[in-house]
């Protein structure tokens, strides 16, 4: 009898201490990974004004073709057909582990928000860019430098824009912005 009570007391003590330990442990019992550093590194830089390089926007078939391809496609993995000369579907990037990985090259997917000549499933978040040359450039409402800056960083013209930022984020090179601008302002009426 005496022994039984002792055992019971011991068992109760054991149970309460374990549950006490557990209770203290529960603040670490679940996963809550840190994301703040990932976000910190990913932040968008301040609105940036760019100077359009000389000979940037031009009536050059190769440049316009690249601009067109970037405009209508999301990335190299999803793009159909062969990209024009000077543009690739995949780029090689060195990972943290030092291994070289093939990554789909990102394109503009401008068509997600804009309609334009030949657009398939164009969105309407941005203005329709059909007939852009005639409506905006020939009429002198816009010039090439405006188009270049708009694509590079639209926030300079409109701080509250819904449009994507393309050069400040380094998603594209200056040359690629020139290609896009050349395509937007090109005369597509004869095509």
């Amino acid at each position: 009898m005496q022994r039984n009570i002792q055992l019971l007391a011991f068992a109760t003590m054991f149970v309460t201490t374990t549950s006490l330990v557990n209770a203290a442990d529960l603040t670490k019992a679940y996963d809550m990974p840190d994301a703040s550093k990932m976000i910190e590194k990913d932040l968008l830089a301040k609105p940036t004004k760019f100077t359009m390089p000389k000979g940037c926007v031009k009536d050059d078939a190769a440049s316009i073709a690249r601009g067109e391809f970037i405009f209508h496609n999301l990335n190299g993995k999803k793009a159909k057909g062969t990209p024009p000369e000077g543009l690739v579907k995949f780029v090689e990037k060195k990972g943290k582990d030092g291994k070289v990985k093939k990554k789909a090259k990102q394109y503009g997917n401008c068509v997600a928000c804009h309609n334009i000549e030949g657009a398939k499933g164009g969105g309407n978040i941005g203005p329709d860019l059909t007939n852009y040359k005639k409506t905006f450039i020939d009429s002198k409402v816009r010039d090439n430098a405006f188009v270049f800056q708009k694509i590079a960083d639209p926030r300079i013209d409109n701080p509250k824009t819904h449009m994507t930022v393309n050069l400040t984020t380094k998603l594209f090179t200056e040359q690629e912005i020139c290609d896009l601008a050349s395509y937007v302002v090109s005369d597509k009426s004869k095509k």
Partner: peptide
Amino acid sequence: TFETARGGRGL
């Protein structure tokens, strides 16, 4: 977090 613009397209 919802309002923070970031990433390759600044969205």
